[in-house]
């Protein structure tokens, strides 16, 4: 009896020491999960989640905030975050906006008064221009975050959906049997799919 108790104590002490050692020796540098989360976020830096950029939101998610506050990333991002963090995917929180697909800002250049407000607002420096000179958006760098629209005093910035080009176009996923059966019924979802196809 006594031997057993002593043995158990010794074992507990050894394992405790091992675990303690491991926790010090293999302590992770920083918090790599934030980087992983940040990589999944779409980097639009739009702030729709209520944080000033994607990285702060990544930090917040790592600290336990819900993963469904990113409208530009939409379902795909939520799914990827759910996979990464091993949590249940939630539907997108409508409070923060709707998933809209890719967008880009376009300045109606004739109307631009050259105030530089939008340049200051752009989180990714994707607007070119100088004071009292016409501004323009570098479309390839624009994330479509919408932040330049608000400050524009003459309302000359439009956010338009990005058009699919013939080179980007690809075949949609074939419908599987349940979906094909569903097409017999005129439901909303299928009609949308038809439009998409």
């Amino acid at each position: 009896m006594l031997t057993a108790i002593i043995t158990l104590f010794i074992l507990a002490a050894i394992f405790g020491a091992l675990l303690g050692f491991a926790s010090i020796k293999f302590k992770p540098e920083g918090n790599p999960i934030i980087e992983d989360i940040n990589n999944i976020l779409p980097q639009t830096q739009c702030g729709q989640c209520g944080h000033p950029g994607c990285r702060p939101y990544a930090q917040a998610i790592a600290d336990g905030e819900p993963i469904n506050k990113c409208p530009p990333g939409g379902e795909a991002t939520i799914q990827a975050l759910a996979d990464l963090l091993d949590v249940e995917p939630l539907p997108l929180d409508a409070e923060h906006g709707e998933e809209k697909g890719k967008q880009v800002a376009i300045i109606r250049e004739a109307e631009c008064i050259g105030c530089t407000k939008c340049i200051q607002a752009c989180p990714v420096d994707a607007i070119l221009g100088a004071a009292k000179q016409m501004h323009t958006v570098i479309e390839s760098e624009c994330t479509g975050c919408d932040l330049c629209v608000e400050p524009c005093p003459v309302d000359c910035i439009d956010i338009v959906p990005v058009q699919t080009t013939i080179r980007q176009w690809h075949k949609s996923k074939p419908l599987t049997l349940p979906e094909i059966i569903a097409t017999d019924r005129p439901t909303q979802r299928i009609n949308e799919e038809e439009h998409a196809a």
Partner: peptide, 10 residues
């Protein structure tokens, strides 16, 4: 694109 945006943002 998102990597580029992140770098530009940072």
């Amino acid at each position: 694109a998102s990597d580029r945006a992140r770098v530009r943002f940072e």
